[in-house]
Write a protein that binds this DNA or RNA. Structure first.
Length: 788
DNA sequence: GCTAAACGGGTTTTT
DNA sequence: CCCGTTTAGC
């Protein structure tokens, strides 16, 4: 249909309508990459070149997968459920569920998230009496995950020194532990799925015959294992349509291998490398800045963004004396932007590391500007939610020792460390799970453990016919979790989250196409089917299972292959949910540069542009480290549509110490004619000998009164230390609050006033919140209620 | 078995 | 400085 291709530029058009052969689309920032990917799928289907069942599209995040799914169904009248669209992990999970026997996994295998994995490793090391000072569990975790991402099992790892030999030995033990418990960690999902396809030719042939069209988003972020998995699926004849941008590769630290782009180009003999260089996001000066900066990198595939928009405004640069003054300036500038009618949500403040958000948040709170910080705890990572999930996991898979250890004594049941050590010993002796070892423990410990075993058994029996939400609700109650948090002073939020978990279960059923009344632990009988398509029930020797080509379809957590409970538990591990920051409200966006990738804002502040911070000092230690920092800066710059601000501070409080940094080298790599210095530009050589760690020099400079006072008064004023106590008492009447007063805030909950400052419209209160720590609130803005 | 103090570590992060 | 985790002590 012509309308599908309408408004595509020639390069986009060419990419969308490529013949079915390996293609690499080098898509610059803001060049319509996602649109091309989605239109490509729609075009293939519309022209009868592909049926939905032959399409596999893979992304890195659930958010990206959801967006793709959503935009695709808006574009096409067909049901997108026939397609496999999801994350690498989601798709691998789905395949492993369908073929769990061939993969050597129990039907109810559970997924360990990063935190679960670490606790499993700690437990393993404790059991083996390994010195965790000499072999830090975190390092072992990294070692294991890294090996898996290279496709290496313990026997393949090349280790010579005693240290690495120990790690290999522990890796092996860890694998055995996981296998016995029926759990897989994140990289295992991929490796297991890779091996499943690699070692099972009929199965591989089946999927190769099915997925004629494989599309990959953010290809520059793939690691070696993901690339190998894609190659396996593609086989000899299927086309991979890879979209990516080597200049936006910012995840090397977690295994991403930009080299996959070059390898792909060569190994698949890509004839069509299409560059999308037309940018639809940023004004000219901003793009010029991005282009010139990134030109400093070597080994690029080569790309230069262009725009039809005019030059637009210059890039504004601000030098602050201190980090708090920098924050003060940012907030003043944001106020000005808002007063021109710009929505708060169109303003982003970016920083290199999370620690930098504190000062900015503090200043925003004082100014009464709504903001949202990205990052932090997410829904399924909360302790109460994880506890409830652990009970659910135990019902489904009693061998899951990670879940067992988590809740065996929570709420407290008088089962202490001593009893658990005894139990772990028995489990090791009989080579079984902790739950299975309970009968071997005698005495008082044995009896309390016995009643825990009975509790789980009872839960399992009682929930046999319950739907998923009923099961969750039942477990929250029967476990004692509800009662426990009811009795806790600060348990209200946690209780609400547990209720939210029940809601999440209901939402899950409808989103994933499960019947609402399906028992949580049975594979639903599809309409018209004569028997449940329980692939789990295939004969043991079903090593050569070949599925109907129309085969397994449906959403990520597939009702045909997963019980609602298994699906929900996978969902909880694979998609940790939103972080707590209140969404929806119009608020200034605060995030790291990494978190900003893929987003765009009318106005962007890139802050803390100092040597050591951005580029980060540790980047100097790594091969290609500085280039990755530069790509990160490139990503940051290209987030801005119309206004870009760059700022740095002469001194900054970090880890309790004042550091004196020189401005980032990136300033020298930008086209000077696009920059507008709001503070006088001081040539580096005029001020600094060279290195930044010359504290004495910095202090002298900082102490110069003409500098310290300069710029915005607001910055200094909001950050000054609270007035002495006597002054606060004097002013107390004017604010309507007293120190020590109990208060309630709609967002932060209960707290106590610890200090007061100012009066009238400027009145501020410092409140120590039970759940959110100490904050300064502008009383004119914050909805603070007195509690008697 | 639970609470308080000492301790350690702090770049970026999704699954 | 600030946090989460471990350990010491009741």
């Amino acid at each position: 249909m012509p309308e599908l291709l309408a408004n595509l530029n020639p390069e986009q058009h060419a990419a969308v309508t490529l013949p079915n052969e390996p293609a690499l689309i080098l898509a610059g920032a803001g060049s319509g990459k996602t649109r091309v990917l989605i239109t490509r799928i729609a075009w293939l289907i519309q022209h009868g070149l592909a049926s939905p069942a032959t399409v596999l599209a893979v992304t890195f995040t659930n958010k990206a997968a959801r967006e793709m799914m959503g935009r695709l169904s808006a574009l096409l009248p067909i049901d997108t459920r026939g397609m496999w669209i999801g994350t690498f992990h989601g798709l691998c999970n789905r395949m492993l569920r369908a073929h769990h026997r061939d993969a050597g996994l129990p039907a109810t295998f559970q997924i360990l998230d990063t935190a679960d994995q670490l606790s499993a490793i700690k437990r393993l090391m404790k059991g083996l009496n390994v010195d965790d000072e000499k072999y830090p569990p975190k390092n072992l975790q990294y070692f294991i995950n890294n090996a898996k991402e290279q496709g290496l099992r313990p026997q393949h790892v090349d280790a010579t020194d005693s240290f690495n030999l120990k790690f290999v030995e522990l890796y092996q033990a860890y694998e055995q532990q996981c296998q016995r418990e029926g759990v897989v960690d994140f990289p295992e999902l991929l490796l297991r799925c890779y091996e499943l396809l690699a070692h099972n030719p009929p199965l591989r042939a089946h999927y190769q015959a099915r997925f004629k069209h494989i599309l990959v988003d953010e290809f520059q972020d793939t690691n070696k294992l993901q690339y190998a998995w894609l190659k396996l699926l593609a086989g000899e004849s299927n086309a991979i349509f890879a979209v990516g941008d080597d200049d936006q590769s910012i995840y090397a630290f977690r295994g991403a291998n930009v080299g996959n782009m070059r390898d792909f180009e060569h190994e698949f003999k890509v004839r069509h490398l299409i560059k999308l260089e037309q940018n639809y996001r940023s004004h000219g000066h901003i793009l010029d800045a991005a282009n010139q900066l990134i030109a400093n990198n070597s080994r690029r595939l080569g790309k230069n963004l262009r725009t039809d928009a005019g030059h637009g405004e210059p890039v504004r640069v601000y030098e602050a004396a201190t980090d708090s003054q920098e924050a003060g300036w940012i907030v003043e500038e944001i106020k000005a932007l808002i007063s021109t009618g710009l929505a708060r949500g169109e303003v982003a403040v970016l920083y290199r590391s999370n620690a930098q958000s504190r000062t900015i948040e503090h200043t925003l709170v004082n100014a009464g500007i709504a903001y949202r910080v990205y990052g932090g705890l997410r829904f399924f990572e909360r302790q109460e939610v994880k506890h409830a999930l652990a009970y659910l996991r135990l019902i489904d898979n009693p061998n899951d020792d990670t879940a067992f250890a988590r809740v065996v004594n929570f709420p407290a049941r008088g089962i202490g460390a001593r009893s658990l050590e005894q139990l772990a010993d028995s489990a090791r002796l009989y080579n079984c799970s902790m739950a299975a070892a309970i009968p071997y423990v005698t005495g008082k410990a044995g009896s309390s453990l016995g009643s825990f075993a009975n509790l789980i058994a009872k839960m399992r029996a009682e929930t046999q016919q319950m739907s998923l939400p009923e099961t969750v609700e039942y477990v929250v109650r029967a476990s004692g979790l509800a009662e426990f948090y009811q009795g806790e002073r600060e348990g209200q939020d946690r209780l609400e989250n547990l209720q939210e978990l029940v809601n999440a279960a209901t939402a899950f059923l409808s989103e994933e196409g499960y019947g609402l009344d399906t028992p949580a632990r049975s594979i639903p009988l599809r309409p018209g089917a004569t028997s449940a398509p329980e692939i789990a029930a295939l004969p043991d020797d079903a090593a050569s299972v070949v599925l109907d080509p129309a085969g397994i379809a449906g959403p990520a957590q597939n009702p045909d292959t997963m019980t609602p409970l298994a699906g929900f538990l996978s969902h909880a591990s694979l998609e940790a949910g939103d972080n707590q920051a209140q969404a929806g409200q119009d608020a200034v966006q605060l995030m790291t540069v990494h978190a900003a990738k893929g987003l765009e804002f009318t106005a962007v502040f890139i802050t803390g542009l100092e040597e050591g911070l951005f580029p980060h000092e540790n980047s100097a230690l790594e091969q290609d480290g500085l280039e990755e920092e530069r790509r990160l800066m490139y990503v940051a710059i290209t987030r801005a549509k119309e206004r870009l601000y760059l700022s740095f501070a002469q001194s900054r409080l970090l880890h309790g110490q004042t550091r004196y940094n020189i401005r980032s080298r990136f300033f020298d790599e930008l086209p000077q004619e696009t920059l507008k210095w709001l503070t006088p530009k001081v040539e580096a050589g005029a001020r600094w000998g060279g290195r930044s760690d010359n504290a004495g020099w910095g202090r002298d400079w900082f102490a110069r009164p003409d500098r310290q006072a300069g710029g915005y008064a607001g910055g200094a004023a909001v950050e000054q230390a609270p007035l002495p106590a006597f002054a606060n008492t004097q002013r107390a009447a004017e604010t309507g609050f007293k120190i020590g007063q109990a208060v309630f805030h709609t967002k932060f909950g209960e707290g106590t006033v610890t200090a007061l400052e100012g009066s009238g419209a400027d009145a501020r209160a410092q409140v120590k919140f039970k759940r959110h720590g100490e904050k300064w609130l502008a009383l004119a803005v914050a909805k603070l209620q007195a509690v008697e």
